[in-house]
Design a protein around this nucleic acid. Structure first.
Length: 550
DNA sequence: AGCCTATGCAGCC
DNA sequence: TGGCTGCCCTAGGC
């Protein structure tokens, strides 16, 4: 099956604020040439060589032996051809991990259904399930309303953070405030309605911010868990941060003792912040006294990282954890002790995230590094095996923030999830990594959302709790997506507002190494990173500087 | 344009 | 258990 070019980009072209672009006719010619090349490569290569000879081009012994960049063996090639990635046939499929075929011919890719492996429906006589079916199920809409997909970039801050974005959080009340944490330990507060209003607090943590949660009863403050081993509580107005817990009071004593905090959630009923570390332990912090309560509890394999914690939205006693020991585990908060989990949900690889469904709390959605999403339809039903597995490309890569499938908190049917895609696809000659909306009740790919300007992978995504808005963290940039307005001729309505921050971290020309008062260059945001021609990015760019407050 | 690097996990011994 | 090695689509600086 030949790789296909998919999707036409809407001509949502606004305006350029510069005349220094190369003339368009030139570019178009180049575009055509490139297309020819791509086409010929889809066909027979030998013919191509013959053609070359006919044309009289010097056939300098470009050895006919093709050497694969991936496995180094001769006879075939792998890697990018234009915007299409050709797999090495010697490796198992990059998507589903099964041998015998490559990604291009993977059944999970060819099928629009994205590949669902249904689990056998077992009859259970579990009384809890009966209660669930009687009492909770009627509250969940049997007919799904049409999904509304935010599929158009409304505004963005390019290179907002100085390192890649690791987590996002919407403000619980103020609809236009987005928080973002980064790998360097900084926290951004952005008002995306007043696009220019934004700040980055530089002194919150000393390395990766792994999770943020708003403080219940005081939505001016956030908790953050970091790989520096501390939980912070930061005032969003002032940026003043206090540390609730420090697991490395003696500083760096080597990697075998350095504790990092990953999973975090707040249980407001119990007045607790729950955090877990890279050695398998859970810690509880009282939100009133800001002090650790009780002893650390081993909740995953000793020495393994616990990457996610989630409190059930309707049953405050239920906790869900997941981690590098390939398990997601369900706990009863009333009796937390090592080995006392209610259920252990097995995965083939590391579990990047595990979330209860946002409204009923009765479903579980997990993202695992084996390129599969797993869904358990009812926590009161049979939990021995997932109800469905959905093959989806979200491989682990040490340089990327781990992918996490996130529920749409507004979907009354609790069936829409969003997750970034790792593998790229050829969209009009550009290799782009879309953000996928998946109906987890069927495995159907509802929408793949992308923009020719975003050439980087988007592992961090969050759907707005009230509005039809998607926030994306991709590399160091943030994007806000809204639904395309059908009624308007997309042409001019609603300019896409893009703010481009400093080109890069400033050289430490000044003693402090701080760049807070520098004016950063307003350079173009183009798809510079892309090796491929793409539809021309034509967003109007607004230059500005990025304030980092320390 | 092309090299370099940060640094997570798995699999091997 | 621990140390070492290798890794299929990174991103961005130099």
């Amino acid at each position: 099956m030949a790789p296909q070019t998919r999707n036409q980009f809407p001509k949502v072209v606004i305006e350029r604020d510069s005349d220094s672009e190369p003339s368009s006719s030139e570019e178009e010619e180049e575009d055509q040439e490139e297309e020819e090349v791509v086409e010929s490569e889809n066909g027979e290569r030998k013919e191509e060589a013959l053609d070359e000879k006919k044309k009289g081009k010097a056939p300098i012994t470009i050895s006919l032996k093709k050497v694969c960049k991936v496995c180094k063996k001769a006879g075939h090639e792998a890697g990018f051809k234009g915007a299409t990635y050709i797999d090495c046939p010697m490796k198992p499929c990059f998507l589903c991990k099964m041998p015998g075929h490559t990604t291009v011919t993977c059944p999970h890719r060819v099928a629009t259904e994205h590949g669902v492996i249904p689990a056998p429906r077992r009859n259970t006589s579990n009384p809890l399930e009966y209660v669930f079916e009687r009492q909770l199920r009627p509250g969940i809409l049997p007919i799904k309303p049409a999904f509304i997909i935010p599929d158009r970039v409304n505004c963005a801050v390019i290179r907002y953070h100085s390192r890649r974005v690791t987590c996002l959080e919407f403000h619980p009340k103020n609809n236009n405030i987005l928080l973002s944490g980064d790998k360097k330990g900084q926290v951004g507060v952005w008002d995306f309605a007043k696009v220019h209003e934004k700040i980055v607090y530089g002194n919150v943590h000393s390395c990766i911010v792994n999770n943020m949660r708003f403080k219940p009863m005081n939505d001016d403050s956030i908790y953050a868990a970091s790989s520096d081993g501390t939980i912070s509580c930061t005032d969003l107005e002032t940026g003043i941060s206090l540390s609730l817990m420090n697991l490395n009071p003696d500083g760096w004593q080597g990697p075998s003792s350095w504790r990092m905090l990953y999973g975090m959630d707040v249980n407001s009923e119990k007045g607790l912040v729950l955090v877990a570390d890279n050695f398998g332990f859970l810690y509880l912090v009282d939100t009133r006294s800001n002090n650790k309560t009780g002893e650390a509890i081993l909740i995953h394999k000793k020495g393994s990282k616990v990457v996610g914690l989630h409190c059930n939205p309707v049953q405050p006693d239920l906790l869900l954890s997941c981690g590098n020991d390939h398990f997601a585990r369900i706990w009863d908060m009333r009796r937390m002790e090592a080995g006392s989990s209610l259920y252990n949900l097995a995965h083939k690889r590391v579990v990047n995230s595990a979330y209860f469904s946002p409204l009923s709390g009765s479903k579980i959605l997990t993202t695992s590094q084996d390129n599969r999403l797993r869904i358990w339809d009812s926590i009161f039903g049979n939990l021995e095996s997932p109800s469905r597995e959905i093959v989806h490309s979200h491989d682990f890569n040490r340089h990327l923030t781990p992918f996490k499938a996130e529920w749409d908190p507004k979907d009354p049917s609790e069936s829409l999830a969003v997750i970034g895609r790792y593998i790229s696809e050829n969209y009009n000659g550009a290799a782009l990594h879309p953000i996928d909306f998946i109906d987890i009740s069927t495995g159907r790919l509802v929408a793949e959302v992308m923009d020719p300007n975003i050439t980087t992978i988007s592992p961090v995504n969050k759907l707005h709790p009230r509005d039809d808005v998607l926030a994306t963290g991709s590399s160091r940039s943030l994007f806000i997506w809204r639904p395309k307005e059908e009624s308007e001729p997309a042409e001019q309505k609603d300019e896409t507002k893009i703010i481009v921050c400093g080109r890069a971290e400033k050289k430490r020309s000044r003693k402090s190494g701080d760049k807070s008062d520098d004016d950063s260059d307003d350079d173009k945001f183009t798809s510079k990173g892309s090796k491929f021609k793409s539809s021309k990015p034509k967003w109007k760019l607004t230059g500005c500087s990025n304030k980092v407050k320390r």
